[in-house]
Nucleic acid binder design. Structure first.
Lengths: 217, 217
DNA sequence: CAAATAGTGTCTTTGAGACACTATCGT
DNA sequence: ACGATAGTGTCTCAAAGACACTATTTG
């Protein structure tokens, strides 16, 4: 009755590292050196080691690719079409990760040993030079990101430890792709944040108070 | 630099087939015949065939296990701890599926070639005889199910084509594990359903009108 | 008519949305 | 004083929650 197939395949973790840069949503991509899809952009990823959990593999990949630890991440979805990699069967467990752009640039000068770059997500989703099924994966991650912004504090991961409310609002607007009313946004966000005693300064306008994510409870 | 490991593993699809029976949330389990975990209950599953997508494997498993096609299902989460199967590395892509109990019982007389049974989910989550990491998987699925009830029409998959509103309300109450106010429930559900011209009859109380899911925009 | 469940009307509270106004910086 | 952005007060409207009432069947 049963197939004696036991579903053998290579298992990889692909990383969707989103960040906000130049007022746009961007994602970390690498430029492929070898076929298939040489010269195309792809998501960074690693194969899952024999002693690793999936989360550990994701964490290792994030460290390798960004030089950072302690990044927000969560498993996204698993892609496993039989022909998604022309060479052999590869199951890709994708992970969504969020980093503040400052941290990304701070740690890795020139960004990494591998040729990592930040691609504008909107551009990437319309581009032709995306390897494998990675455009589809990115589209799915983009959607999940937009969805979760509405009912989780996920957006705080895209902003420095201390941030102004206008700054946070811009992040929400980019993720949701629509303008928000200032007053309403603040009312909604208020219970999630706490004031610091600091403010911005030096700009040719009123300074903005810095907040941080309210922790605990 | 790179490991020459290529993440080789067996890839399986495990099925969480939820249904509502005897006023309780239940899930389809099989009784294991052989070690490891002989005599324990486990989720039904199949290995992914070399030419199959993950969804196709899930669909095949559902057919084999329930005798049914056209069941609501979606990918849930992928579990891949290195020691989750003591024999070898198995990556489990779990799928959540919902069926009306009538259909389940109708099609498969005695339920299946394999020893399938319906386990009370609450009981199962406290039980000791659950194989592998399946208790954890079920807990995760249970949570997702509760979450999605709130903002998707997912509950309709647990009810026959035509149903009464009190019946649907009971499903919601079971999934959310709390009582709902009748009037409010109906107001909320109203736009999603359309009346039929039929009603229940024969009960020692006022009959209840049958509705069906409003289809299309 | 009593028991039982189906179904409705309506008041209150909460939160989203929209808009207008005031505040504070640098030049 | 002006341009620019930060920050607040308040009205409206829609949805969620709570509760009390009416309706229709069988035995």
């Amino acid at each position: 009755m049963e197939f004696s197939q036991d579903g053998l395949a290579s298992v990889a973790v692909d990383l969707l590292v989103f960040t906000i840069d130049e007022g746009k949503l961007k994602i970390l991509t690498i430029r492929r050196q070898y076929p298939p899809f040489a010269g195309f952009r792809a998501l960074p990823g690693v194969f899952v080691g024999p002693e690793e959990t999936l989360d550990q593999a994701a964490l290792r990949g994030l460290r390798e690719e960004t030089g950072l630890d302690s990044i927000y991440f969560e498993q996204l979805y698993t892609f496993g079409a039989p022909d998604r990699d022309p060479r052999r069967r590869v199951i890709s467990v994708s992970y969504l990760a969020l980093v503040d752009a400052q941290r990304l640039k701070g740690v890795a000068p020139g960004l990494r040993t591998t040729e990592a770059e930040l691609s504008d997500v909107r551009e990437l989703l319309a581009a032709e030079d995306v390897a494998f099924d990675h455009r589809e994966i990115i589209a799915y991650g983009r959607q999940r990101l937009a969805g979760k912004v509405e009912y989780t504090p996920i957006a705080f991961s895209l902003v420095p430890e201390e941030f102004t409310l206008p700054q946070l609002q811009r992040v929400y607007e980019i993720l949701l792709d629509r303008p928000l009313y200032k007053a309403n946004f603040r009312k909604k966000i208020a219970p999630l944040v706490e004031e610091t005693d600091r403010s911005t300064s030096g700009d040719a306008h009123r300074p903005s108070r810095l907040y941080r994510l309210r922790r605990g409870e």
